[in-house]
Design a protein around this nucleic acid. Structure first.
Lengths: 249, 249
DNA sequence: TAAATTAATGAAATAATATGCTAAAAGAAG
DNA sequence: CTTCTTTTAGCATATTATTTCATTAATTTA
Protein backbone atom coordinates (compact mmCIF):
# COMPACT_ATOMS: atom_id res chain seq x y z
CA UNK A 1 0.00 0.00 0.00
CA UNK A 2 1.24 3.47 -0.85
CA UNK A 3 1.85 5.96 1.87
CA UNK A 4 -0.54 8.52 0.40
CA UNK A 5 -3.21 5.91 -0.05
CA UNK A 6 -2.87 4.95 3.58
CA UNK A 7 -3.09 8.53 4.76
CA UNK A 8 -6.24 9.05 2.72
CA UNK A 9 -7.77 6.03 4.36
CA UNK A 10 -6.88 7.45 7.74
CA UNK A 11 -8.52 10.78 6.90
CA UNK A 12 -11.63 9.00 5.69
CA UNK A 13 -11.82 6.96 8.84
CA UNK A 14 -11.52 10.04 11.01
CA UNK A 15 -14.29 11.73 9.08
CA UNK A 16 -16.46 8.68 9.49
CA UNK A 17 -15.83 7.81 13.13
CA UNK A 18 -14.73 11.15 14.54
CA UNK A 19 -11.72 9.38 16.04
CA UNK A 20 -9.03 6.82 15.29
CA UNK A 21 -6.71 4.80 17.52
CA UNK A 22 -3.14 4.16 16.43
CA UNK A 23 -3.40 0.55 17.54
CA UNK A 24 -6.54 -0.10 15.49
CA UNK A 25 -5.09 1.48 12.38
CA UNK A 26 -1.94 -0.56 12.76
CA UNK A 27 -3.92 -3.79 12.56
CA UNK A 28 -6.36 -2.58 9.96
CA UNK A 29 -3.75 -1.25 7.55
CA UNK A 30 -1.18 -3.94 8.32
CA UNK A 31 1.71 -1.66 9.23
CA UNK A 32 3.50 -0.99 12.50
CA UNK A 33 2.24 1.56 14.97
CA UNK A 34 5.39 3.54 14.24
CA UNK A 35 4.28 4.05 10.71
CA UNK A 36 0.80 5.03 11.77
CA UNK A 37 2.22 7.54 14.19
CA UNK A 38 4.41 8.99 11.49
CA UNK A 39 1.35 9.30 9.26
CA UNK A 40 -0.69 10.94 11.99
CA UNK A 41 2.09 13.37 12.72
CA UNK A 42 2.40 14.34 9.08
CA UNK A 43 -1.34 14.83 8.71
CA UNK A 44 -1.38 16.80 11.91
CA UNK A 45 1.48 19.01 10.69
CA UNK A 46 -0.61 19.77 7.61
CA UNK A 47 -3.45 20.74 9.92
CA UNK A 48 -5.76 18.04 8.59
CA UNK A 49 -6.29 16.23 11.88
CA UNK A 50 -5.60 16.72 15.53
CA UNK A 51 -3.08 14.27 16.94
CA UNK A 52 -3.67 13.19 20.52
CA UNK A 53 -2.13 10.62 22.80
CA UNK A 54 -3.31 7.26 21.50
CA UNK A 55 -4.72 8.33 18.17
CA UNK A 56 -6.22 11.33 16.42
CA UNK A 57 -9.38 13.42 16.18
CA UNK A 58 -10.83 15.78 13.57
CA UNK A 59 -9.52 19.32 13.75
CA UNK A 60 -11.62 21.68 15.84
CA UNK A 61 -13.63 23.69 13.37
CA UNK A 62 -14.17 26.27 16.03
CA UNK A 63 -12.18 29.21 14.68
CA UNK A 64 -10.93 32.12 16.77
CA UNK A 65 -14.15 33.69 17.92
CA UNK A 66 -15.76 36.90 16.86
CA UNK A 67 -15.75 37.85 20.52
CA UNK A 68 -11.98 37.91 20.58
CA UNK A 69 -11.67 40.21 17.59
CA UNK A 70 -14.36 42.46 18.98
CA UNK A 71 -11.99 43.82 21.59
CA UNK A 72 -8.87 44.33 19.54
CA UNK A 73 -8.15 47.89 18.34
CA UNK A 74 -11.22 49.01 20.21
CA UNK A 75 -10.02 52.60 20.57
CA UNK A 76 -9.33 52.99 16.86
CA UNK A 77 -12.64 51.40 15.96
CA UNK A 78 -14.57 53.66 18.24
CA UNK A 79 -12.78 56.63 16.73
CA UNK A 80 -13.88 55.55 13.27
CA UNK A 81 -17.42 54.83 14.39
CA UNK A 82 -17.73 58.33 15.85
CA UNK A 83 -16.82 59.87 12.51
CA UNK A 84 -19.13 57.54 10.60
CA UNK A 85 -22.19 58.16 12.71
CA UNK A 86 -22.28 61.79 11.60
CA UNK A 87 -23.11 60.64 8.07
CA UNK A 88 -26.35 58.96 9.10
CA UNK A 89 -29.45 61.04 8.45
CA UNK A 90 -33.08 60.47 9.25
CA UNK A 91 -35.03 58.43 6.73
CA UNK A 92 -32.03 56.88 5.04
CA UNK A 93 -31.79 53.30 3.93
CA UNK A 94 -28.40 51.89 4.92
CA UNK A 95 -26.56 48.62 4.32
CA UNK A 96 -23.98 47.52 6.86
CA UNK A 97 -21.40 44.82 6.27
CA UNK A 98 -20.22 42.54 9.05
CA UNK A 99 -17.04 44.04 10.44
CA UNK A 100 -16.32 44.67 14.08
CA UNK A 101 -15.90 48.35 13.24
CA UNK A 102 -19.46 48.39 12.00
CA UNK A 103 -20.53 46.74 15.24
CA UNK A 104 -18.98 49.64 17.08
CA UNK A 105 -20.90 52.00 14.83
CA UNK A 106 -24.15 50.15 15.52
CA UNK A 107 -23.57 50.70 19.22
CA UNK A 108 -23.35 54.46 19.03
CA UNK A 109 -26.14 55.41 16.65
CA UNK A 110 -28.04 58.15 18.49
CA UNK A 111 -31.47 57.12 19.65
CA UNK A 112 -33.28 59.91 17.83
CA UNK A 113 -32.12 58.66 14.43
CA UNK A 114 -34.78 57.05 12.34
CA UNK A 115 -33.46 54.90 9.51
CA UNK A 116 -33.73 51.49 7.89
CA UNK A 117 -30.67 49.27 8.17
CA UNK A 118 -30.04 46.14 6.15
CA UNK A 119 -27.37 43.80 7.51
CA UNK A 120 -26.25 40.20 7.27
CA UNK A 121 -24.30 40.22 10.53
CA UNK A 122 -25.82 38.58 13.60
CA UNK A 123 -23.93 40.70 16.15
CA UNK A 124 -24.84 43.93 14.38
CA UNK A 125 -28.50 42.99 14.10
CA UNK A 126 -28.56 41.99 17.74
CA UNK A 127 -26.94 45.26 18.73
CA UNK A 128 -29.46 47.24 16.71
CA UNK A 129 -32.39 45.60 18.51
CA UNK A 130 -31.46 47.88 21.41
CA UNK A 131 -32.15 50.94 19.29
CA UNK A 132 -35.66 52.35 19.76
CA UNK A 133 -36.50 53.54 16.28
CA UNK A 134 -34.27 51.96 13.64
CA UNK A 135 -35.95 49.45 11.39
CA UNK A 136 -33.75 46.41 10.89
CA UNK A 137 -33.93 44.03 7.96
CA UNK A 138 -31.81 40.94 8.31
CA UNK A 139 -30.53 39.36 5.11
CA UNK A 140 -30.87 35.60 5.46
CA UNK A 141 -28.69 32.78 4.18
CA UNK A 142 -26.19 30.17 5.23
CA UNK A 143 -24.26 31.21 8.32
CA UNK A 144 -20.51 31.52 8.36
CA UNK A 145 -19.82 30.62 11.97
CA UNK A 146 -16.52 32.32 12.78
CA UNK A 147 -17.63 35.63 11.28
CA UNK A 148 -21.24 35.26 12.40
CA UNK A 149 -22.54 36.56 9.08
CA UNK A 150 -24.71 35.02 6.41
CA UNK A 151 -23.08 34.25 3.07
CA UNK A 152 -23.92 32.60 -0.20
CA UNK A 153 -26.25 33.07 -3.12
CA UNK A 154 -29.25 34.01 -1.02
CA UNK A 155 -27.39 36.96 0.38
CA UNK A 156 -26.17 38.08 -3.02
CA UNK A 157 -29.60 37.91 -4.56
CA UNK A 158 -31.26 39.70 -1.64
CA UNK A 159 -28.81 42.55 -1.80
CA UNK A 160 -29.15 42.82 -5.56
CA UNK A 161 -32.80 43.71 -5.10
CA UNK A 162 -32.07 46.60 -2.75
CA UNK A 163 -31.73 50.33 -3.27
CA UNK A 164 -29.87 52.02 -0.44
CA UNK A 165 -28.64 55.52 0.26
CA UNK A 166 -25.46 54.49 2.05
CA UNK A 167 -23.44 51.44 2.70
CA UNK A 168 -20.92 51.16 5.52
CA UNK A 169 -18.27 48.61 4.73
CA UNK A 170 -15.31 47.18 6.53
CA UNK A 171 -12.53 45.93 4.29
CA UNK A 172 -9.64 43.50 4.18
CA UNK A 173 -7.39 46.02 2.49
CA UNK A 174 -7.44 49.17 0.43
CA UNK A 175 -4.96 50.99 -1.79
CA UNK A 176 -5.12 53.36 -4.73
CA UNK A 177 -4.06 50.92 -7.48
CA UNK A 178 -6.14 47.87 -6.52
CA UNK A 179 -8.99 49.61 -4.71
CA UNK A 180 -10.78 47.53 -2.09
CA UNK A 181 -9.72 43.91 -1.75
CA UNK A 182 -10.89 40.96 0.39
CA UNK A 183 -9.27 37.71 1.52
CA UNK A 184 -12.54 35.79 1.12
CA UNK A 185 -14.12 35.22 -2.28
CA UNK A 186 -17.70 34.99 -1.05
CA UNK A 187 -17.39 38.17 0.96
CA UNK A 188 -15.82 40.00 -1.98
CA UNK A 189 -18.79 39.05 -4.12
CA UNK A 190 -21.31 40.18 -1.52
CA UNK A 191 -19.55 43.50 -1.13
CA UNK A 192 -19.65 44.09 -4.88
CA UNK A 193 -23.41 43.73 -4.70
CA UNK A 194 -23.61 46.10 -1.76
CA UNK A 195 -21.75 48.72 -3.73
CA UNK A 196 -24.04 48.28 -6.74
CA UNK A 197 -27.07 48.67 -4.51
CA UNK A 198 -25.92 51.85 -2.78
CA UNK A 199 -25.94 55.49 -3.73
CA UNK A 200 -22.87 56.21 -1.61
CA UNK A 201 -20.11 53.89 -0.51
CA UNK A 202 -18.38 54.52 2.80
CA UNK A 203 -15.39 52.42 3.72
CA UNK A 204 -14.42 52.07 7.37
CA UNK A 205 -10.97 50.75 8.13
CA UNK A 206 -8.28 50.86 10.76
CA UNK A 207 -4.89 52.23 9.66
CA UNK A 208 -3.32 48.78 9.40
CA UNK A 209 -5.56 47.98 6.41
CA UNK A 210 -4.42 50.96 4.37
CA UNK A 211 -2.21 50.00 1.42
CA UNK A 212 -2.83 46.30 2.18
CA UNK A 213 -3.80 44.17 -0.80
CA UNK A 214 -5.80 40.95 -0.40
CA UNK A 215 -6.57 38.18 -2.84
CA UNK A 216 -9.95 39.22 -4.29
CA UNK A 217 -10.81 42.63 -5.73
CA UNK A 218 -14.05 44.28 -4.64
CA UNK A 219 -14.10 47.65 -6.34
CA UNK A 220 -11.75 50.23 -7.88
CA UNK A 221 -11.05 53.21 -5.71
CA UNK A 222 -13.12 55.47 -7.95
CA UNK A 223 -16.41 54.00 -6.71
CA UNK A 224 -15.66 54.81 -3.09
CA UNK A 225 -17.16 58.06 -1.90
CA UNK A 226 -15.74 58.30 1.59
CA UNK A 227 -12.94 56.61 3.49
CA UNK A 228 -13.04 56.75 7.27
CA UNK A 229 -10.01 55.74 9.33
CA UNK A 230 -8.59 56.38 12.76
CA UNK A 231 -5.88 58.61 11.27
CA UNK A 232 -6.11 62.34 10.85
CA UNK A 233 -7.68 63.16 7.50
CA UNK A 234 -4.79 65.50 6.68
CA UNK A 235 -2.27 62.68 6.86
CA UNK A 236 -0.17 62.63 3.68
CA UNK A 237 -0.92 58.94 3.18
CA UNK A 238 -4.33 60.05 1.88
CA UNK A 239 -3.10 62.41 -0.85
CA UNK A 240 -3.38 59.87 -3.68
CA UNK A 241 -6.82 58.84 -2.43
CA UNK A 242 -7.98 62.43 -2.48
CA UNK A 243 -6.70 62.82 -6.04
CA UNK A 244 -9.04 60.03 -7.06
CA UNK A 245 -11.97 61.90 -5.55
CA UNK A 246 -12.30 60.00 -2.29
CA UNK A 247 -13.44 62.06 0.64
CA UNK A 248 -11.42 61.37 3.80
CA UNK A 249 -12.83 61.63 7.32
CA UNK B 1 -11.19 5.98 25.22
CA UNK B 2 -9.02 8.95 24.35
CA UNK B 3 -8.51 11.62 26.96
CA UNK B 4 -9.77 14.36 24.72
CA UNK B 5 -12.79 12.34 23.74
CA UNK B 6 -13.62 11.84 27.38
CA UNK B 7 -13.34 15.55 28.08
CA UNK B 8 -15.70 16.30 25.20
CA UNK B 9 -18.22 13.92 26.70
CA UNK B 10 -17.89 15.64 30.04
CA UNK B 11 -18.52 19.02 28.43
CA UNK B 12 -21.58 17.69 26.65
CA UNK B 13 -22.89 16.23 29.86
CA UNK B 14 -22.46 19.51 31.69
CA UNK B 15 -24.29 21.33 28.95
CA UNK B 16 -27.07 18.79 29.18
CA UNK B 17 -27.50 18.47 32.93
CA UNK B 18 -26.04 21.75 34.13
CA UNK B 19 -23.94 19.79 36.59
CA UNK B 20 -21.81 16.66 36.86
CA UNK B 21 -20.56 14.66 39.83
CA UNK B 22 -17.08 13.20 39.78
CA UNK B 23 -18.38 9.95 41.19
CA UNK B 24 -21.01 9.56 38.45
CA UNK B 25 -18.57 10.33 35.69
CA UNK B 26 -16.11 7.86 37.11
CA UNK B 27 -18.61 5.04 36.78
CA UNK B 28 -20.06 6.22 33.50
CA UNK B 29 -16.73 6.65 31.74
CA UNK B 30 -15.05 3.72 33.46
CA UNK B 31 -12.05 5.56 34.85
CA UNK B 32 -10.99 6.42 38.37
CA UNK B 33 -12.20 9.51 40.14
CA UNK B 34 -8.64 10.76 40.07
CA UNK B 35 -8.74 10.88 36.34
CA UNK B 36 -12.09 12.63 36.31
CA UNK B 37 -10.80 15.20 38.75
CA UNK B 38 -7.78 15.82 36.57
CA UNK B 39 -10.04 16.24 33.54
CA UNK B 40 -12.28 18.65 35.40
CA UNK B 41 -9.28 20.63 36.57
CA UNK B 42 -7.91 20.86 33.05
CA UNK B 43 -11.24 21.95 31.59
CA UNK B 44 -11.61 24.40 34.40
CA UNK B 45 -8.14 25.81 33.74
CA UNK B 46 -9.22 26.39 30.14
CA UNK B 47 -12.25 28.25 31.47
CA UNK B 48 -14.72 25.83 29.93
CA UNK B 49 -16.35 24.73 33.15
CA UNK B 50 -16.43 25.70 36.80
CA UNK B 51 -14.91 23.12 39.11
CA UNK B 52 -16.60 22.75 42.48
CA UNK B 53 -16.29 20.38 45.38
CA UNK B 54 -17.67 17.05 44.20
CA UNK B 55 -18.02 17.85 40.52
CA UNK B 56 -18.39 20.75 38.10
CA UNK B 57 -20.86 23.31 36.75
CA UNK B 58 -21.12 25.37 33.56
CA UNK B 59 -19.30 28.70 33.63
CA UNK B 60 -21.61 31.52 34.68
CA UNK B 61 -22.67 33.68 31.80
CA UNK B 62 -23.79 37.27 32.04
CA UNK B 63 -27.48 38.07 31.91
CA UNK B 64 -28.88 41.30 30.37
CA UNK B 65 -32.44 42.05 29.13
CA UNK B 66 -33.48 39.24 26.79
CA UNK B 67 -31.09 37.11 28.76
CA UNK B 68 -33.12 37.66 31.89
CA UNK B 69 -36.20 36.01 30.49
CA UNK B 70 -33.99 33.21 29.37
CA UNK B 71 -33.36 32.25 32.96
CA UNK B 72 -36.94 32.28 34.14
CA UNK B 73 -38.25 28.75 34.37
CA UNK B 74 -34.73 27.65 33.51
CA UNK B 75 -35.08 24.32 35.21
CA UNK B 76 -38.31 23.48 33.41
CA UNK B 77 -36.92 24.63 30.09
CA UNK B 78 -33.78 22.63 30.46
CA UNK B 79 -35.85 19.64 31.37
CA UNK B 80 -37.81 20.04 28.14
CA UNK B 81 -34.68 20.63 26.10
CA UNK B 82 -33.13 17.43 27.41
CA UNK B 83 -36.10 15.44 26.23
CA UNK B 84 -36.14 17.22 22.88
CA UNK B 85 -32.47 16.75 22.11
CA UNK B 86 -32.93 12.99 22.04
CA UNK B 87 -35.11 13.39 18.93
CA UNK B 88 -32.33 14.94 16.87
CA UNK B 89 -30.57 12.52 14.56
CA UNK B 90 -27.62 12.93 12.25
CA UNK B 91 -28.39 14.30 8.82
CA UNK B 92 -31.77 15.76 9.66
CA UNK B 93 -33.08 19.09 8.45
CA UNK B 94 -34.71 20.93 11.33
CA UNK B 95 -36.64 24.17 11.71
CA UNK B 96 -36.53 25.91 15.06
CA UNK B 97 -38.89 28.68 16.10
CA UNK B 98 -37.76 31.48 18.37
CA UNK B 99 -38.71 30.54 21.90
CA UNK B 100 -36.40 30.60 24.88
CA UNK B 101 -37.01 26.90 25.33
CA UNK B 102 -35.60 26.39 21.86
CA UNK B 103 -32.60 28.49 22.83
CA UNK B 104 -31.99 26.12 25.69
CA UNK B 105 -32.23 23.25 23.24
CA UNK B 106 -29.72 24.92 20.92
CA UNK B 107 -27.29 25.12 23.81
CA UNK B 108 -27.27 21.44 24.62
CA UNK B 109 -27.11 19.81 21.21
CA UNK B 110 -24.20 17.33 21.57
CA UNK B 111 -21.15 18.30 19.59
CA UNK B 112 -21.07 15.14 17.53
CA UNK B 113 -24.49 15.77 15.97
CA UNK B 114 -24.46 16.75 12.33
CA UNK B 115 -27.63 18.40 11.08
CA UNK B 116 -28.98 21.41 9.22
CA UNK B 117 -30.98 23.89 11.23
CA UNK B 118 -33.17 26.65 9.84
CA UNK B 119 -34.12 29.41 12.24
CA UNK B 120 -35.33 32.99 12.25
CA UNK B 121 -34.18 33.73 15.79
CA UNK B 122 -31.01 35.78 16.31
CA UNK B 123 -30.17 34.33 19.74
CA UNK B 124 -30.64 30.78 18.54
CA UNK B 125 -28.51 31.33 15.44
CA UNK B 126 -25.84 32.99 17.54
CA UNK B 127 -25.89 30.12 20.00
CA UNK B 128 -25.57 27.59 17.20
CA UNK B 129 -22.43 29.29 15.86
CA UNK B 130 -20.70 27.66 18.84
CA UNK B 131 -21.56 24.21 17.57
CA UNK B 132 -18.75 22.60 15.56
CA UNK B 133 -20.70 20.74 12.92
CA UNK B 134 -24.26 21.99 12.57
CA UNK B 135 -25.08 23.89 9.40
CA UNK B 136 -27.17 26.95 10.14
CA UNK B 137 -29.45 28.72 7.69
CA UNK B 138 -30.85 31.98 8.91
CA UNK B 139 -34.22 33.02 7.54
CA UNK B 140 -34.04 36.73 6.78
CA UNK B 141 -36.67 39.43 7.06
CA UNK B 142 -37.77 42.42 9.11
CA UNK B 143 -36.62 42.15 12.71
CA UNK B 144 -39.02 42.17 15.58
CA UNK B 145 -36.86 43.79 18.24
CA UNK B 146 -38.30 42.58 21.55
CA UNK B 147 -38.39 38.96 20.40
CA UNK B 148 -35.20 39.19 18.34
CA UNK B 149 -36.72 37.21 15.51
CA UNK B 150 -37.42 38.02 11.89
CA UNK B 151 -41.05 38.27 10.82
CA UNK B 152 -43.10 39.21 7.82
CA UNK B 153 -43.71 38.03 4.30
CA UNK B 154 -40.09 37.24 3.56
CA UNK B 155 -40.02 34.76 6.41
CA UNK B 156 -43.28 33.16 5.36
CA UNK B 157 -42.18 32.75 1.78
CA UNK B 158 -38.75 31.39 2.73
CA UNK B 159 -40.25 28.78 5.00
CA UNK B 160 -42.82 27.79 2.39
CA UNK B 161 -39.99 26.70 0.15
CA UNK B 162 -38.45 24.36 2.72
CA UNK B 163 -38.78 20.65 3.32
CA UNK B 164 -37.71 19.68 6.84
CA UNK B 165 -37.71 16.49 8.85
CA UNK B 166 -38.57 18.11 12.17
CA UNK B 167 -39.69 21.39 13.54
CA UNK B 168 -39.28 22.38 17.14
CA UNK B 169 -41.84 24.96 18.17
CA UNK B 170 -42.57 26.93 21.25
CA UNK B 171 -46.19 27.99 21.67
CA UNK B 172 -48.35 30.58 23.33
CA UNK B 173 -50.90 28.00 24.38
CA UNK B 174 -52.15 24.54 23.58
CA UNK B 175 -55.29 22.60 24.36
CA UNK B 176 -57.21 19.73 22.80
CA UNK B 177 -60.15 21.70 21.39
CA UNK B 178 -58.33 24.67 19.87
CA UNK B 179 -54.95 23.08 19.24
CA UNK B 180 -51.96 25.43 19.20
CA UNK B 181 -52.71 29.13 19.55
CA UNK B 182 -50.60 32.31 19.50
CA UNK B 183 -51.10 35.84 20.83
CA UNK B 184 -49.39 37.37 17.76
CA UNK B 185 -50.94 37.17 14.32
CA UNK B 186 -47.68 37.30 12.37
CA UNK B 187 -46.12 34.58 14.47
CA UNK B 188 -49.18 32.38 14.10
CA UNK B 189 -48.90 32.67 10.34
CA UNK B 190 -45.20 31.79 10.34
CA UNK B 191 -45.81 28.78 12.52
CA UNK B 192 -48.49 27.54 10.16
CA UNK B 193 -45.89 27.57 7.41
CA UNK B 194 -43.37 25.75 9.57
CA UNK B 195 -45.86 22.99 10.19
CA UNK B 196 -46.62 22.68 6.49
CA UNK B 197 -42.91 22.45 5.73
CA UNK B 198 -42.09 19.74 8.26
CA UNK B 199 -42.49 16.01 8.31
CA UNK B 200 -42.90 15.96 12.08
CA UNK B 201 -44.08 18.70 14.41
CA UNK B 202 -42.70 18.81 17.93
CA UNK B 203 -44.17 21.30 20.35
CA UNK B 204 -42.11 22.37 23.35
CA UNK B 205 -43.93 24.09 26.19
CA UNK B 206 -43.78 24.65 29.90
CA UNK B 207 -46.71 23.40 31.97
CA UNK B 208 -48.23 26.87 32.35
CA UNK B 209 -49.04 26.94 28.62
CA UNK B 210 -51.07 23.76 28.71
CA UNK B 211 -54.80 24.36 28.29
CA UNK B 212 -54.12 28.05 27.65
CA UNK B 213 -55.88 29.54 24.62
CA UNK B 214 -54.54 32.60 22.78
CA UNK B 215 -56.11 34.82 20.13
CA UNK B 216 -54.86 33.27 16.88
CA UNK B 217 -55.08 29.58 15.96
CA UNK B 218 -52.01 27.89 14.52
CA UNK B 219 -52.95 24.27 14.03
CA UNK B 220 -55.44 21.68 15.25
CA UNK B 221 -54.04 19.19 17.71
CA UNK B 222 -54.15 16.40 15.16
CA UNK B 223 -51.17 17.78 13.23
CA UNK B 224 -48.88 17.70 16.24
CA UNK B 225 -46.73 14.60 16.47
CA UNK B 226 -45.05 15.11 19.80
CA UNK B 227 -45.61 17.35 22.79
CA UNK B 228 -42.71 17.88 25.16
CA UNK B 229 -43.27 19.49 28.55
CA UNK B 230 -41.61 19.58 31.93
CA UNK B 231 -44.33 17.37 33.40
CA UNK B 232 -44.19 13.63 33.65
CA UNK B 233 -45.59 12.12 30.49
CA UNK B 234 -47.92 9.89 32.55
CA UNK B 235 -49.67 12.92 34.04
CA UNK B 236 -53.44 12.60 33.58
CA UNK B 237 -53.60 16.05 32.02
CA UNK B 238 -52.24 14.43 28.84
CA UNK B 239 -54.91 11.75 28.47
CA UNK B 240 -57.05 13.71 25.97
CA UNK B 241 -53.90 14.64 24.00
CA UNK B 242 -52.90 11.01 23.76
CA UNK B 243 -56.36 10.11 22.55
CA UNK B 244 -55.78 12.47 19.62
CA UNK B 245 -52.61 10.62 18.73
CA UNK B 246 -50.09 13.07 20.22
CA UNK B 247 -46.99 11.45 21.62
CA UNK B 248 -46.03 12.88 25.02
CA UNK B 249 -42.45 13.14 26.23
C1' DT C 1 -17.39 18.14 66.63
C1' DA C 2 -17.21 13.59 64.42
C1' DA C 3 -18.09 11.01 60.40
C1' DA C 4 -18.17 10.87 55.62
C1' DT C 5 -16.89 12.46 51.46
C1' DT C 6 -13.82 14.71 48.31
C1' DA C 7 -9.23 16.54 47.04
C1' DA C 8 -4.27 16.54 46.61
C1' DT C 9 0.10 14.24 46.40
C1' DG C 10 3.60 11.14 45.14
C1' DA C 11 4.94 6.48 43.83
C1' DA C 12 4.25 2.82 40.62
C1' DA C 13 2.27 0.60 36.59
C1' DT C 14 0.97 0.81 32.04
C1' DA C 15 0.57 2.57 27.49
C1' DA C 16 2.10 5.61 23.94
C1' DT C 17 5.71 8.23 21.79
C1' DA C 18 10.27 9.69 20.06
C1' DT C 19 14.72 8.49 18.54
C1' DG C 20 18.44 6.19 16.45
C1' DC C 21 19.50 2.45 13.80
C1' DT C 22 18.84 -1.08 10.11
C1' DA C 23 17.04 -2.96 5.95
C1' DA C 24 14.28 -3.08 2.00
C1' DA C 25 12.36 -0.76 -1.89
C1' DA C 26 12.17 2.85 -5.32
C1' DG C 27 14.41 6.37 -8.18
C1' DA C 28 18.25 8.76 -10.28
C1' DA C 29 22.65 8.98 -12.51
C1' DG C 30 26.29 7.03 -14.71
C1' DC D 1 22.74 -2.87 -15.47
C1' DT D 2 25.05 -1.14 -11.54
C1' DT D 3 25.77 2.09 -8.00
C1' DC D 4 24.36 5.67 -5.22
C1' DT D 5 20.87 8.21 -2.94
C1' DT D 6 16.38 8.80 -1.05
C1' DT D 7 12.27 7.24 0.80
C1' DT D 8 9.86 4.23 3.61
C1' DA D 9 8.95 0.83 7.19
C1' DG D 10 10.22 -1.87 11.24
C1' DC D 11 12.59 -2.71 15.64
C1' DA D 12 14.91 -1.77 20.20
C1' DT D 13 15.26 1.35 23.63
C1' DA D 14 14.80 5.58 26.21
C1' DT D 15 11.48 8.98 27.28
C1' DT D 16 7.10 10.79 28.21
C1' DA D 17 2.05 10.68 29.07
C1' DT D 18 -1.61 8.77 31.33
C1' DT D 19 -3.83 6.34 34.80
C1' DT D 20 -4.36 4.04 39.19
C1' DC D 21 -3.55 3.34 43.99
C1' DA D 22 -2.27 4.40 48.65
C1' DT D 23 -1.89 7.98 51.81
C1' DT D 24 -2.78 12.27 53.82
C1' DA D 25 -5.16 16.73 53.89
C1' DA D 26 -9.21 19.39 53.26
C1' DT D 27 -14.15 20.08 53.02
C1' DT D 28 -18.84 19.14 53.74
C1' DT D 29 -22.71 17.25 56.35
C1' DA D 30 -25.18 15.69 60.16
Amino acid sequence: MLKEERQHLILDKIKLNRKVLSADLSIELQVSEDTIRRDLNELSAKGLIKKVHGGALPVDTKAPSYEERKFSNLKEKNNIAKKAVSLIKNGQVIIMSGSTTNLQLAKIIPSDINATIYTYSLPIALQLTEHPSIEIIFIGGKLNKPAQVTVGLDVVSSISQLRADLCFMGTGGINVENGMTEPNWEVSHIKKCMIEASEKVIVLCTNNKINEVKRYPVTPIIKINTLITDLNSKNEIFIPFKEKGVKIL
